[in-house]
Computed example of a mutant assay.
Amino acid sequence: MANLNNMNKKFHTLDDFVGTHFIYTYDNGWEYEWYCKNDHTVDYRIHGGMVAGRWVKDQEAHINLLTDGVYKIAWTEPTGTDVALDFVPNEHKLNGTIFFPKWVQDHPEITVCYQNEHIDLMHKSREKYETYPKMVVPEFAKITYIGNAGINNEQAIAEAPYEGMTDDIRNGNYFDENYHIIKKDGHSYIEK
């Protein structure tokens, strides 16, 4: 088991940020896991909140350095949800604003899946149900995990979220020293 939580990492440039894996909890209690896969793509899992259980790989995003150690990331999902995140990792905080279309607010269960296998359903739902008014969720969050997953690490976010996953990651029971998922008997192995 490897404790890869590097909460003391110092961020200055865009290169410091790209390849980093974060876990954070919004002030409203929603817990997210987010990975800056490369300079234009993010992966994420949602562990708490109205769309808990949702996970996504290879989401195209605008990833920018605003000033020393401060980053802005923004994207639009196939659901029509818009996301804007401002990371201040040296202070272990971020501010996120999520703009949920009305249909996601009314039918969040449709989005709780591995989105990459259901893009057509996301597009159909976006057309079938109402988009407005959007539900705007602006929240501050506390970063509770910073891991150096490296660029284009397909294992950083590679399976559906489960209860206790973020604790397993923070406690060093999920990834080995090479930032690969620990396996046993063909399944992720988490020591309890």
Rank of each mutant, 00 (worst) to 15 (best):
L14D: 12
Q115C: 08
P161W: 02
F100E: 12
A61H: 01
H12D: 10
D16S: 02
R126P: 01
A61Q: 05
T13G: 08
P108T: 13
E127K: 08
S125F: 07
Y179A: 01
A2Q: 02
V112K: 12
A156C: 09
K184Q: 07
N95Q: 15
E177A: 04
N178M: 00
K9V: 09
G147V: 05
I182F: 07
D86N: 05
K124D: 14
K128E: 15
H123P: 00
N148Q: 13
P133I: 13
V18E: 10
A149D: 04
H62E: 10
M122I: 11
D58Y: 09
Y24I: 06
T131S: 08
W55Q: 07
N5K: 06
T13V: 14
H40F: 01
D185Q: 10
P89K: 07
Q115A: 00
N6Y: 02
Y26P: 00
E154F: 05
D176W: 13
R54N: 10
P78S: 02
T111G: 09
F100Q: 09
G48Y: 15
G164C: 06
G96Q: 13
H92R: 15
L85V: 10
E31K: 15
R126H: 09
H180Q: 13
A141S: 10
N171E: 10
F87R: 12
C36S: 07
S188F: 15
H92S: 14
H107T: 02
N153T: 01
W30E: 04
W30A: 05
V104F: 00
D58F: 10
V104P: 01
M1D: 11
P78T: 03
P133E: 03
A156H: 04
W55E: 05
V51A: 07
F175R: 02
E31M: 12
D185S: 07
F100L: 11
M135K: 09
R54E: 04
G48S: 10
D82S: 15
Y114L: 09
E154R: 15
N5G: 03
T97L: 13
D43Q: 09
G19N: 04
H118L: 11
F99C: 06
S125M: 09
E139W: 15
P101G: 00
M165R: 14
Q59C: 01
I181Q: 04
V51G: 09
N38E: 11
I143R: 06
K10H: 06
Q155Y: 15
D15P: 11
I190D: 00
Y24P: 05
D58R: 11
D82C: 14
N3I: 13
T97M: 13
F17H: 13
E163H: 12
E154N: 12
E77Y: 03
E127I: 03
P78A: 07
